[in-house]
């Protein structure tokens, strides 16, 4: 799995802990990496992803539907699941301010042994680490 993930586009380094099933992925300097592709690659290597968290710097945007999105690249953004932290950052939408957040992009539904991840990942903001 480590080699398989290491071959994915934008991956600088992969660390796997067999003890607790933790996989740490460091993106390359430009940060151009596709979490959905990594999820698929992980499933393809024969293991089940229980959850995926990211730390990223980006901008809070307002979607046409009225919901919030977190933009990490000009052509890459994740819809934000509404919670207290997303509400508190709503005032930043449409401003040039960047924030560094830690959030959950995927969590396996409870009770299911194996679940294919959704193609459209949604971000649940867990922590706002920095506002710039």
């Amino acid at each position: 799995m480590k080699q398989h993930l290491g071959r994915q586009s934008g991956v600088q380094n992969v660390e796997v802990s067999l003890l607790d099933g933790k996989v740490d992925i460091t993106p390359k300097e430009d940060g151009r990496i596709d979490p959905a592709q990594l999820l698929k690659a992980t499933y393809d290597s024969g293991v089940t992803v229980a959850e995926m968290d990211i730390t990223a710097r980006g901008k809070i945007m307002k979607e046409a539907s009225g919901g919030l999105a977190f933009q990490v690249a000009p052509n890459q953004s994740f819809a934000c699941m509404p919670n207290d932290l997303s509400k508190s950052s709503e005032s930043l939408s449409g401003t040039p301010a960047t924030v560094t957040v830690r959030g959950q992009l995927f969590k396996k539904p409870a009770g299911k042994k194996k679940a294919q991840p959704a193609s459209q990942l949604q971000l649940t903001i867990l922590q706002i680490q920095k506002r710039e």
Binding site: D20, G21, K22, L38, V47, A50, R57
Partner: peptide, 30 residues
């Protein structure tokens, strides 16, 4: 002029945006 400055700021902040770290917890690893 103000619009141009705002656009430059907006583009600069998007250019700085990036994913810094990804962490997964997986099951079934041998």
């Amino acid at each position: 002029m103000n619009k141009l400055a705002y656009l430059v700021l907006l583009l600069a902040s998007v250019a700085q945006a990036q994913i810094k770290h990804i962490e997964m917890r997986v099951e079934g690893m041998t």
